[in-house]
Simulated scan of single mutants.
Amino acid sequence: MKALQFSQTGDLSALRYVDLPTPLPAAGEVLVEVRASGLNPSDVKNVLGRFPYTTLPRIPGRDFAGVVVQGPQNLLGKAVWGTGKELGFYNDGAHAAYVKLPADGVALKPESLSFSQAASLGVPYTTAWDALERSGVGRGTRVLVIGAGAVGRAALALARVRGAHVLG
Rank of each mutant, 00 (worst) to 15 (best):
E86W: 10
A97R: 12
G77F: 01
T83C: 12
V106I: 11
A97L: 14
P110A: 07
G84D: 09
G105T: 01
G93A: 08
A79E: 15
L76D: 04
F89T: 12
G77Q: 01
A97M: 11
K100H: 08
K100L: 09
K109R: 14
V69K: 06
V99A: 00
F89D: 12
K109G: 05
A107K: 11
V80R: 02
Y90L: 12
L101Y: 03
G88Y: 05
L76M: 15
K78D: 02
G105V: 05
N91M: 10
P72A: 05
G93E: 00
G84H: 01
W81F: 14
F89A: 15
L108D: 10
Q70M: 10
E86S: 13
P110S: 03
V69M: 08
V99L: 10
Q73H: 12
G71L: 08
H95V: 06
Y98T: 05
K100F: 00
G82C: 06
E86K: 15
P110W: 02
L76T: 01
A97V: 10
K109P: 05
T83K: 00
A94M: 00
L75I: 05
E86Q: 12
A97C: 09
G88E: 02
D92P: 09
A94W: 01
Q73D: 14
L87Y: 03
V106C: 00
E111N: 12
K100D: 04
N91H: 14
G84M: 07
E111Y: 04
F89S: 13
W81V: 08
P102W: 06
W81I: 02
K85W: 12
V69N: 05
L87Q: 07
A103I: 01
V99E: 09
D92F: 13
L108W: 07
Y90V: 09
V68A: 03
K109E: 02
V68C: 07
N91F: 15
V69P: 00
Y98H: 15
V99H: 06
E111M: 10
A96M: 01
G93Y: 04
Q70F: 02
K78R: 14
A107S: 13
D104C: 04
G105C: 03
P72S: 06
A103E: 07
Y90H: 13
P72Q: 06
V99D: 07
L75P: 08
F89I: 13
G77H: 02
L75K: 08
N74A: 14
D104H: 14
V69H: 04
Q73V: 14
A107L: 12
A107F: 10
T83D: 10
Y98A: 09
Q73C: 00
N91I: 14
L87C: 08
D92I: 04
A107R: 12
A79H: 14
P72G: 06
